[in-house]
């Protein structure tokens, strides 16, 4: 399917989900579904670098929070509408990804992973010490009273995040089938051989870190409006970092389908468990699932299905 047509289908799906939500019209459902959509964006963004290129980013929470605090800053200074804040937050996170990549990717790949892990902590420190955006105590964000075309602001946020999810998945699928994606896959398989086949490895890795950062920034930008009150502990919550990794790994990293499946399954499960048990228990579950999958099913749910299909195909033929 051509990329534009796929985007059309993705957007159509988003609209259908939204319409179904409007039919039920339950405020809690909106908020829960928003979180799942947000994880689709984060997991898909992570997978562009992690799954396609083979570089682990532990700092998803840092990128997400940078997106969120960009919104807080813009809210306090120029008060742009949300749909303009999102691309700005994305661009800032893209530059952050580029800078991190440039400083560490010329060395061994593992330094990038370590640096992203430390980066989230430093950004956290930065925000805690930055009183303009609320410092350690956090900041209240007052939602606009009304938005055009939508019944309420929650509905508007939900629609926005669904659209972002459609964009993220379409971008990931486009990358996967493009010349860029082939180059990234070559880097993932064998970086030296890729370079010797003419692949400009450093440049492509930097494109991947920037693109991944951009999408993570998108996911974070609407967050302050969603929660109404942002503090560093909430925006830099380790759950974002863990879920961004766990969802693609559990879903499967080789294509855009994996993170989507992972985010929908794990995201929904966590929403249910948070309501019924506690948020700490569901985070423990994510950790255990992550460790289990990387150990016994490294190709995720998609990989398990492939195996099953191949077995069946073998029996038929």
């Amino acid at each position: 399917m051509a990329p534009l047509r796929f985007f059309g289908v993705a957007l159509g799906t988003a609209v259908a989900v939204f319409a179904a939500g409007a039919f039920v019209h339950n405020e809690y459902l909106y908020l829960a579904a928003y979180t799942v959509a947000q994880y689709i964006v984060l997991a898909t963004a992570w997978n562009i670098l992690g799954g396609y290129t083979g570089y682990v980013n532990f700092g998803a929470a840092g990128f997400f929070a940078t997106g969120a605090y960009t919104s807080v800053f813009l809210h306090k200074t120029v008060a742009l509408p949300l749909f303009l804040m999102i691309p700005i937050a994305g661009l800032i996170c893209a530059v952050l990804g580029l800078a991190m990549g440039y400083l560490t990717l010329r060395l061994r790949g593992v330094f990038f992973a370590i640096a992203t892990l430390a980066m989230a902590i430093v950004l956290h420190t930065l925000v805690v010490n930055w009183s303009f955006v609320g410092g350690a105590r956090g900041a209240y964000i007052i939602r606009p009273r009304e938005v055009m075309l939508f019944a309420g602001y929650s509905q508007y946020l939900f629609a926005t995040m669904l659209a972002l999810a459609a964009i993220a998945v379409s971008v990931a699928r486009w990358v996967e089938h493009s010349r860029l994606g082939r180059g990234l896959a070559a880097i993932r398989d064998d970086e030296t051989a890729a370079e010797c086949s003419g692949v400009p490895t450093l440049r492509l890795k930097l494109v991947a870190t920037s693109l991944s950062g951009l999408l993570m920034g998108f996911a974070g930008a609407p967050f302050p409006y969603y929660v109404g009150y942002v503090d560093p502990a909430g925006a830099f919550n380790l759950a974002y970092g863990v879920n961004s990794i766990a969802m693609p790994l559990i879903g499967g990293m080789s294509s855009w389908v994996g993170p989507l499946i992972g985010a929908v399954l794990l995201g929904t499960l966590q929403q249910v468990l948070t309501v019924t048990i506690s948020s700490a228990v569901n985070l423990l579950l994510v950790g255990v699932l992550l460790v289990t999958f990387v150990t016994v099913a490294p190709n995720g749910i998609v990989g398990l299905f492939d195996k099953l299909r191949r077995k069946r195909g073998g029996r038929d033929g």
């Binding site: 180059g183 051989a193 086949s197 692949v199």
Partner: peptide
């Protein structure tokens, strides 16, 4: 162009896809 003493295929790809990488990116 060069070949490696110990072969370094792009192991997740098929034979044809391996060659396509060089076609896409090399001279």
């Amino acid at each position: 162009a060069r070949t490696f003493q110990i072969p370094r295929p792009f192991h997740s790809m098929t034979v044809r896809e391996n060659i396509e990488i060089a076609l896409l990116y090399a001279a």
